[in-house]
Computed example of a mutant assay.
Amino acid sequence: MRFSLGCEIGYDIAEQSTLIFNIEAMNGGRQDVISENLQITPFIQADYNIAEDTGNRYRRLIVNPCQLTLRYDAEVELRPLHAMPDVIDEVPVSQLPLDILPYLNPSRYCPSDQLARFAARQFGHMEPGHNRVTTICNWIHEEVDYISGASDTSTTAADTFSMRAGVCRDFAHLGITFCRALGIPARFASCYAWQLEPQDFHAVFEAYLGDRWYLFDATRMAALDGLVRIGCGRDAADTAFSTIYGNVNPLAMRVWIKALNADPTQEWTTEAVSLAKD
């Protein structure tokens, strides 16, 4: 499947500030960037870096007072792996690749140690595997209300569990937290999401099962095989689309994604979906 996607973001810069952006689609695995263009107005030379461990792509700008606009356009092809959930097992910690182990640990927004007893009581009796993670997503979807403005940048998964309300990043954080509490490595993923309405940057999570990362979306708001990943990390702190140091006021933001060779009415897959490299 091929997608045309992008975003346009504006800021009012009141004093010299440093801004770090993570808005460009990841390139690798089963996700290929066919073409892309990043416009910065007024033009400012940006430092560029690709994180070795995740593939996240960062741009750092040092900006003097002005009105700044970034526009990113790209064409991306997805070649998602589809698999039957029933045959995808969890991996014992003793057999996990060493570079996956950090995704078992509590992190800033995912205090898995605080929710471990509930996770064990609610999900611990289930047969390990992909279907158990799907059950976690079902529980979040049924028990947590999606309410814009119900959370902020300080809200953790423990807060969401208590309030039973949040937005996509909170749903993802709670899914990650439950997985880690059960010994399933899990990480946060930001993305452009086909069929998401209204369009915005979207947050999902990935769980490491079998021999790869599989996608999960507890909000049920977008198609798993229409998620174009931007960044991944321990939680939202690692994948913010912008990180600002200075006196900066956000202006208008617009996000879009369009399928170029798919039927927009097609049903979402019920199979397991992965964009990880083979």
Rank of each mutant, 00 (worst) to 15 (best):
G29E: 10
A218S: 11
S35L: 07
Y58G: 00
R220T: 06
A157F: 06
E206D: 07
Q199V: 01
N249G: 01
R117G: 06
V63D: 07
R187G: 02
I34K: 14
V248E: 02
E8T: 15
G246N: 03
N247K: 14
G231E: 00
H130L: 12
A189R: 07
T156W: 08
W194Y: 13
F201W: 04
A223S: 14
R164Q: 15
P65T: 11
E143V: 11
S162F: 12
S112P: 04
L209Y: 01
A150G: 11
R187C: 03
E206T: 05
S148N: 14
P85I: 09
D73H: 14
S17T: 08
A259E: 13
C168H: 05
Y146Q: 04
P65D: 10
A158Y: 07
M84V: 11
D73K: 10
I244L: 09
T265S: 14
E77V: 13
M126V: 00
Y245S: 14
H173F: 02
F188D: 09
P92L: 03
G246V: 01
F178R: 03
G246H: 05
V91I: 14
E197Q: 08
W139L: 09
T134K: 13
Y109T: 02
F118P: 11
Y214I: 00
W194N: 11
R59S: 06
V87Y: 06
V33I: 13
M126F: 12
F43G: 00
A158C: 10
P42N: 08
H125F: 14
E8H: 10
D225F: 10
A46N: 06
L196Q: 03
S274M: 04
F171R: 05
I88V: 12
E77P: 02
A223I: 01
P198R: 04
